[in-house]
Design a protein around this nucleic acid. Sequence first.
DNA 1: CAGAATCCTTCGCGATACTG
DNA 2: CAGTATCGCGAAGGATTCTG
Lengths: 106, 106
Amino acid sequence: MAVRDTLDVVGGKWKLLIIIAISSGNSRFREIERSIPKISSKVLADELKELEQHDLIKRTVYDASPVIVEYTVTPYSDTLKKVVDSMIEWGTNHRKRIMGKEKVKV
Amino acid sequence: MAVRDTLDVVGGKWKLLIIIAISSGNSRFREIERSIPKISSKVLADELKELEQHDLIKRTVYDASPVIVEYTVTPYSDTLKKVVDSMIEWGTNHRKRIMGKEKVKV
DNA sequence: CAGAATCCTTCGCGATACTG
DNA sequence: CAGTATCGCGAAGGATTCTG
């Protein structure tokens, strides 16, 4: 099933959030880490590797001192736009729905 | 973040697959279980409860002997259509890309 | 800063058996 | 059939420390 394939690549707790963070302008490791609440550096490092293997992000090392590493999204990750946008839309709407309900529901 | 809200509700390994299974015409517990490879009855039971709490599926008990229980998707679950469709589309394309190794261009 | 290494905890998920 | 009850593994995730 196709949905399963998608979940295998961008499922889990962090991957889409990381892609969003990078595409929002956070390119440095610490920037990404700070922009995602509650993520640890170990988890971030692990996830970045997987995303790079799937060609969804690109890691570039600049030979400075100290060394500078930049993460950017790849053109391929743009194909996830529909997925991300639909999830943003649904989540936004769902939050409104929950908010409106709690004053009526027990 | 909105995506996080969406992941909290339909994230994880099974929830979207269950919704798809039910909306595809599987309404009985064992039908759903059989239509989703590798899922166990415990996991299915747990997930069904959560989905019902989020008003994404409806559980109806018919007083027969033996008792008949039917699961159906709710109108609210239709709002997930965009999410599901975009994931099906992406997963399908991604599989082609993996198979063709570079043949499928973005 | 950008991670690697290590250790530890949580719990999602699974296998099996059993009940009404 | 439609679940529940246990038991428990393994992996995801977390905390801390350390290195270049």
